[in-house]
Protein backbone atom coordinates (compact mmCIF):
# COMPACT_ATOMS: atom_id res chain seq x y z
CA UNK A 1 0.00 0.00 0.00
CA UNK A 2 2.98 2.27 0.49
CA UNK A 3 3.21 2.45 -3.29
CA UNK A 4 -0.46 3.41 -3.71
CA UNK A 5 -1.30 7.04 -4.54
CA UNK A 6 -2.12 9.01 -1.39
CA UNK A 7 -5.43 10.27 -2.73
CA UNK A 8 -6.87 6.73 -2.80
CA UNK A 9 -7.32 6.77 1.00
CA UNK A 10 -8.86 10.24 0.66
CA UNK A 11 -11.33 8.78 -1.86
CA UNK A 12 -12.14 5.99 0.58
CA UNK A 13 -13.18 8.60 3.15
CA UNK A 14 -15.17 10.52 0.57
CA UNK A 15 -16.91 7.27 -0.22
CA UNK A 16 -17.63 6.61 3.46
CA UNK A 17 -19.01 10.14 3.87
CA UNK A 18 -21.32 9.47 0.92
CA UNK A 19 -20.15 12.52 -1.04
CA UNK A 20 -17.72 10.98 -3.54
CA UNK A 21 -17.87 12.16 -7.14
CA UNK A 22 -18.50 9.71 -9.98
CA UNK A 23 -14.93 10.05 -11.31
CA UNK A 24 -13.35 9.50 -7.92
CA UNK A 25 -15.51 6.47 -7.28
CA UNK A 26 -14.56 4.91 -10.61
CA UNK A 27 -10.89 5.50 -9.90
CA UNK A 28 -11.22 4.04 -6.40
CA UNK A 29 -13.00 0.90 -7.66
CA UNK A 30 -10.49 0.37 -10.45
CA UNK A 31 -7.60 0.70 -8.02
CA UNK A 32 -9.08 -1.55 -5.34
CA UNK A 33 -9.70 -4.40 -7.77
CA UNK A 34 -5.97 -4.91 -8.10
CA UNK A 35 -4.79 -3.80 -4.65
CA UNK A 36 -5.11 -6.22 -1.74
CA UNK A 37 -3.72 -3.65 0.75
CA UNK A 38 -6.31 -1.04 -0.14
CA UNK A 39 -9.07 -3.64 0.03
CA UNK A 40 -7.90 -4.47 3.53
CA UNK A 41 -7.71 -0.79 4.50
CA UNK A 42 -11.24 -0.20 3.27
CA UNK A 43 -12.43 -3.31 5.06
CA UNK A 44 -10.88 -2.12 8.32
CA UNK A 45 -12.48 1.27 7.99
CA UNK A 46 -15.97 -0.14 7.39
CA UNK A 47 -15.68 -2.53 10.32
CA UNK A 48 -14.42 0.35 12.48
CA UNK A 49 -17.59 2.27 11.63
CA UNK A 50 -19.74 -0.80 12.31
CA UNK A 51 -17.94 -1.20 15.65
CA UNK A 52 -18.72 2.37 16.79
CA UNK A 53 -22.27 2.19 15.48
CA UNK A 54 -22.97 -0.91 17.57
CA UNK A 55 -22.66 1.25 20.68
CA UNK A 56 -25.73 0.77 22.84
CA UNK A 57 -27.90 3.68 23.85
CA UNK A 58 -26.76 5.00 27.22
CA UNK A 59 -29.52 5.12 29.83
CA UNK A 60 -30.15 8.53 31.34
CA UNK A 61 -29.79 8.55 35.16
CA UNK A 62 -33.16 8.34 36.95
CA UNK A 63 -34.97 11.61 37.84
CA UNK A 64 -32.84 13.55 35.40
CA UNK A 65 -35.73 15.82 34.36
CA UNK A 66 -36.77 16.52 37.98
CA UNK A 67 -33.21 17.40 38.93
CA UNK A 68 -32.87 19.83 36.04
CA UNK A 69 -36.22 21.42 36.90
CA UNK A 70 -35.12 21.84 40.52
CA UNK A 71 -31.87 23.48 39.53
CA UNK A 72 -33.55 26.00 37.21
CA UNK A 73 -33.26 29.58 38.46
CA UNK A 74 -36.59 30.96 39.72
CA UNK A 75 -35.61 34.49 38.73
CA UNK A 76 -37.05 34.13 35.26
CA UNK A 77 -40.64 33.86 36.52
CA UNK A 78 -40.43 36.93 38.71
CA UNK A 79 -38.80 39.04 36.06
CA UNK A 80 -41.69 38.08 33.76
CA UNK A 81 -44.18 39.56 36.22
CA UNK A 82 -41.98 42.59 36.75
CA UNK A 83 -41.68 43.09 33.02
CA UNK A 84 -45.48 42.99 32.71
CA UNK A 85 -45.90 45.49 35.52
CA UNK A 86 -43.37 47.81 33.97
CA UNK A 87 -45.03 47.55 30.60
CA UNK A 88 -48.51 48.46 31.88
CA UNK A 89 -48.07 51.25 34.45
CA UNK A 90 -51.50 52.73 33.75
CA UNK A 91 -53.32 49.42 34.30
CA UNK A 92 -51.41 48.90 37.52
CA UNK A 93 -52.31 52.40 38.75
CA UNK A 94 -55.97 51.88 37.81
CA UNK A 95 -56.06 48.51 39.57
CA UNK A 96 -54.50 49.95 42.71
CA UNK A 97 -57.01 52.82 42.68
CA UNK A 98 -59.96 50.40 42.32
CA UNK A 99 -58.68 48.24 45.17
CA UNK A 100 -58.27 51.13 47.59
CA UNK A 101 -61.54 52.77 46.58
CA UNK A 102 -63.62 49.63 46.99
CA UNK A 103 -61.85 48.83 50.24
CA UNK A 104 -62.77 52.18 51.77
CA UNK A 105 -66.35 52.07 50.48
CA UNK A 106 -67.02 48.52 51.68
CA UNK A 107 -65.43 49.09 55.04
CA UNK A 108 -67.69 52.13 55.32
CA UNK A 109 -70.69 49.97 54.54
CA UNK A 110 -69.77 47.42 57.20
CA UNK A 111 -69.25 50.08 59.85
CA UNK A 112 -72.69 51.46 59.11
CA UNK A 113 -74.59 48.36 60.18
CA UNK A 114 -75.76 50.05 63.43
CA UNK A 115 -79.05 51.87 63.84
CA UNK A 116 -78.75 55.61 63.67
CA UNK A 117 -80.93 58.57 62.96
CA UNK A 118 -80.37 62.26 62.32
CA UNK A 119 -80.90 64.23 65.48
CA UNK A 120 -83.93 66.44 65.15
CA UNK A 121 -86.26 67.87 67.80
CA UNK A 122 -89.76 66.31 67.99
CA UNK A 123 -88.52 62.83 66.89
CA UNK A 124 -89.52 59.75 68.91
CA UNK A 125 -87.38 56.60 68.82
CA UNK A 126 -88.91 53.24 69.81
CA UNK A 127 -86.44 50.42 69.43
CA UNK A 128 -85.38 50.63 65.77
CA UNK A 129 -88.36 52.66 64.66
CA UNK A 130 -88.32 56.41 64.35
CA UNK A 131 -91.67 58.14 64.78
CA UNK A 132 -92.70 61.61 63.76
CA UNK A 133 -95.61 62.08 66.21
CA UNK A 134 -99.02 63.38 65.11
CA UNK A 135 -99.44 67.12 65.17
CA UNK A 136 -95.66 67.72 65.28
CA UNK A 137 -93.52 69.12 62.50
CA UNK A 138 -89.88 68.24 61.95
CA UNK A 139 -87.92 70.92 60.18
CA UNK A 140 -84.93 69.58 58.26
CA UNK A 141 -83.82 66.36 56.58
CA UNK A 142 -84.04 62.96 58.29
CA UNK A 143 -81.70 60.06 57.56
CA UNK A 144 -82.46 56.70 59.17
CA UNK A 145 -79.92 53.89 58.96
CA UNK A 146 -80.84 50.26 59.68
CA UNK A 147 -84.27 51.20 61.00
CA UNK A 148 -87.79 52.14 59.96
CA UNK A 149 -89.53 55.45 60.03
CA UNK A 150 -93.23 56.12 60.66
CA UNK A 151 -94.42 59.57 59.77
CA UNK A 152 -97.68 60.60 61.45
CA UNK A 153 -97.04 64.31 61.62
CA UNK A 154 -95.32 66.53 59.06
CA UNK A 155 -91.73 66.72 57.80
CA UNK A 156 -90.36 69.83 56.22
CA UNK A 157 -87.41 68.24 54.37
CA UNK A 158 -86.08 65.04 52.73
CA UNK A 159 -86.37 61.57 54.25
CA UNK A 160 -83.79 58.87 53.48
CA UNK A 161 -84.13 55.34 54.83
CA UNK A 162 -81.17 52.96 54.49
CA UNK A 163 -81.86 49.25 55.07
CA UNK A 164 -85.30 49.98 56.44
CA UNK A 165 -88.87 50.94 55.57
CA UNK A 166 -90.71 54.18 55.20
CA UNK A 167 -94.27 54.03 56.58
CA UNK A 168 -96.77 56.83 56.54
CA UNK A 169 -100.50 57.24 56.95
CA UNK A 170 -101.50 60.83 56.40
CA UNK A 171 -97.99 62.06 56.15
CA UNK A 172 -97.05 65.47 55.01
CA UNK A 173 -93.51 65.49 53.66
CA UNK A 174 -92.32 68.44 51.67
CA UNK A 175 -89.03 66.95 50.44
CA UNK A 176 -88.04 63.70 48.68
CA UNK A 177 -88.51 60.26 50.18
CA UNK A 178 -85.83 57.67 49.46
CA UNK A 179 -85.39 54.05 50.52
CA UNK A 180 -82.02 52.41 50.06
CA UNK A 181 -81.63 48.62 50.49
CA UNK A 182 -78.89 46.87 48.58
CA UNK A 183 -75.18 47.38 48.70
CA UNK A 184 -74.99 48.91 45.27
CA UNK A 185 -77.87 51.25 45.88
CA UNK A 186 -76.11 52.23 49.04
CA UNK A 187 -72.94 52.87 47.09
CA UNK A 188 -74.89 54.93 44.60
CA UNK A 189 -76.48 56.86 47.42
CA UNK A 190 -73.07 57.45 48.99
CA UNK A 191 -71.62 58.70 45.72
CA UNK A 192 -74.65 60.91 45.11
CA UNK A 193 -74.52 62.36 48.59
CA UNK A 194 -70.79 63.03 48.19
CA UNK A 195 -71.54 64.81 44.93
CA UNK A 196 -74.38 66.70 46.53
CA UNK A 197 -72.27 67.86 49.44
CA UNK A 198 -69.52 68.82 47.02
CA UNK A 199 -72.08 70.74 45.00
CA UNK A 200 -73.48 72.52 48.05
CA UNK A 201 -69.91 73.29 49.10
CA UNK A 202 -69.30 74.93 45.73
CA UNK A 203 -72.68 76.73 46.00
CA UNK A 204 -71.79 78.12 49.38
CA UNK A 205 -68.46 79.37 48.14
CA UNK A 206 -69.96 81.27 45.27
Amino acid sequence: MSTCPEHIVQYMHEYLDGDISREHEQELRAHMQNCKDCQKHMQELTSTIAFVKSAAVIEVPPNFVEQVMQRLPKRKMRSGVQRWLRRHPFLVAAAMFCIFMSASLFSGYKNDQEFSVTKQPNLQVEGQTVIVPEGKTVKGDIVVKNGDIVVKGAVDGNITVINGKYMASTANVTGQIEEVDEVFEWLWYKIKSNAKSAWSFIDKNE
Partner: peptide, 13 residues
Amino acid sequence: QHAYSDIVSLYQQ
Protein backbone atom coordinates in the same frame (compact mmCIF):
# COMPACT_ATOMS: atom_id res chain seq x y z
CA GLN B 1 -41.40 27.26 33.67
CA HIS B 2 -43.14 23.91 33.78
CA ALA B 3 -43.30 23.71 29.97
CA TYR B 4 -39.52 23.33 30.02
CA SER B 5 -39.77 19.84 31.53
CA ASP B 6 -41.17 18.58 28.20
CA ILE B 7 -38.13 19.96 26.41
CA VAL B 8 -35.78 18.32 28.92
CA SER B 9 -37.44 14.91 28.67
CA LEU B 10 -37.41 15.14 24.88
CA TYR B 11 -33.66 15.77 24.62
CA GLN B 12 -32.22 14.33 27.85
CA GLN B 13 -31.17 11.08 26.19
